[in-house]
Amino acid sequence: MIDFYQLPIFGILLTVVVFFAARALRNNIKFVLFNPVLIAITLIILFLVVFDIRFEDYNKGGKYLSFFLGPAIVALGVLFYEKYQLIRHNIYPFLLAVGCGGLISIASVSLISIVMNAPDVIIRSLVSMSVTTPIAIEITKITEGIPSLTAGVVIAVGVFGNAFGSGFLKLVGIQSQTAVGTALGTAAHGIGTARAIEIGPLPGAYSGLAMCVNGILTTLISPYVVLWIVGSI
């Protein structure tokens, strides 16, 4: 006889129930650090720690939910096609902006890791830090980092960008709303895009597209950067 928490349905139910509860909470409390994903993860970890349940047992169900990240990435291609028409006349400035931002992100993670003498696993796990969580996890599998560390940092970066991104850009003299959208999508992926959609539909479209483009760019480049700096993958 195995315990209930070792059945896959336990992990699935726990995740879904806590996630929707966290989202309902978000609708009542409009405070930016009350990000539903952040709250859901924190509550589930607390639950597992309190009841002394191992992550491996939880993940027997959790992995069925993670599986849907694959088709969700494919769905990003559909999103890209839908929004592409809206920005066609500005496609080259847009691609150049996302390209510069994506490269700066990789360079910055690498340089700071080297300067602060961080262990290799940090650059392996954080090189994809700016891109959307499912793609970042895939990149970390290639660069042999810790996917859960990637997911945690990527979500934190998204929440940070969502909360402070547009205020920071205003402070440093950016007036163009579409530029703010592109920047939020490039640096803070889907959670940043949620903020861009609040600014307006057009900044939202730029942000969603920037998230897709930077995802592809970072996938193509970061394994080579890690190989070059660390010497092996």
Partner: peptide, 11 residues
Amino acid sequence: VLFYVPYGVGL
């Protein structure tokens, strides 16, 4: 976002 919650819990 729901689909990547388990990775976050892996932290």
